[in-house]
Design a binder for these strands. Sequence first.
RNA 1: CGGGGUAUAGCGUAGUCCGGUUAGCGCGCCUGCUUUGGGAGCAGGAGGUCGAGUGUUCGAAUCACUCUACCCCGACCA
Length: 489
Amino acid sequence: MAKELTPQAENYAQWYNDLVIKADMAENSAVRGSMVIKPYGYAIWEKMQAILDGMFKETGHENAYFPLFIPKSFFSKEASHVEGFAKECAIVTHYRLKNDPEKGIIVDPDAKLEEELIVRPTSETIIWDTYRKWVQSYRDLPILINQWANVVRWEMRTRLFLRTSEFLWQEGHTAHATRQEAVAEAEQMLRVYADFAENFMAMPVLTGVKSPNERFAGAVETYCIEALMQDGKALQAGTSHFLGQNFAKAFDVKFVNKENKQEYVWATSWGVSTRLIGALIMSHSDDNGLVLPPKLAPIQVVIVPIFRKEEELIAITEKVDGLIKDLKKKGISVKFDNRDTHKPGYKFAEWEMKGVPVRLAIGPRDLEKGTVEVARRDTLEKEVLQFIDIADKIENLLERIQKNIYQKALVFRDDNTFIVDTWEAFQDRIEKGGFVLAHWDGTPETEQKIKEETKATIRVIQPTAKPETGKCIYTGKPSPQRVVFAKSY
RNA sequence: CGGGGUAUAGCGUAGUCCGGUUAGCGCGCCUGCUUUGGGAGCAGGAGGUCGAGUGUUCGAAUCACUCUACCCCGACCA
């Protein structure tokens, strides 16, 4: 009973923390705000990486790697970019330590850097400084590059996966000859993210653009996918930015177009991070632990043998050997948990905590009857099935689980999306959580005031199929469309 | 950076107010036997510079001062 989670209903934040620790995904490290990602958590990240990486390559991108350190001066080149990141930068000032007879190891004051280095909070500056050298003609464009990297943002408060001082992510940085092409790229990558969120993470997302207040520092337009967590708070799960010519101008990246005229290059950047693991957890999991969508589960099927004697284990092993091969042939990852150091009940609880989608239990009784017990993690249902054709049945079940948890999350989101027309109803609804669709007069001032009074921000402005005019919830001024408000992570 | 709190074995904690033998308990860990279809039982065992430093005292986990780290609430944020 050592591994009980705080129930969600009692304290959602505590539940989340307990789960990350007890499912063995990550733990806090000796460095404030930085976590150790443990093998099981990292395996989930590797699955995400592999799928996203494939999608990026499918859309024509290549991977490259840029330095961790960025000269301080680079940051001052794009004004709003500096403003956005200045308050959360780690800075390298020295390059050597020395022994001090009194204080032990100290920073060698003689080893001060001429120019301090910033540990990258994002790589636009160093990348655009590099792109300058790569681009002369329209024939050099587009540049479609992604990098998998770690970045550092010195956050005041951190939470495992959701906000850590150092985090892993990917950042795409593209350069284009025209505005239209860059906008199309930013929109394309938003669709890639939405596709990944919905079809792999089984997490429904709203897509659209950010309000000016919430825009990325240096962007002309920020597109985002926005998900609703089980506690009614929104989570920004991925962003794609149309950067206009801001960085090209700041770093003087020009090209000669077909008409032999100098033009600044158009840019995009886009990223998702290990925060997605937090999103995954808070989309599907329950008081028994993690619930993973089959497409991202490091282990999709676990087989727990039930045995007293060595001979029984041998018989079971023989029985499941073919099944394991069949499943692997189908690309399904299987773990045969034949440890004799733990009892079946312990294993059941452990794999439940770790969110393995399908668990098979097989013991002497099953061997006699030619059956196997199949348990699914999402519904916690168990049934005894004939062993015949079991690999096909499991393959089918995994697909059903993937669909079911998406459907469940979708219903939850729809049940927690509200249309509100009065300020009183708005305040009340925001307090209770969920997405709130309301009219807004379009000004940053109003958004700011709403944030100050309710802590809610505009999460996303969705593209409008049918514009619905109305009056701003706060000022009563005319509004062209509803926007999505929520309290967020 | 403001406000509040905590620091005792791998983890969770009792003891601190009111100083006094060997710092107690649960989980986990190790050994043995019995167990194994939902987190096993019994028996034995190992494991502690009581966050760090200084002071008060015959004597400090306990009192005083200083420092450090972490947690919670705010402002900031993927």
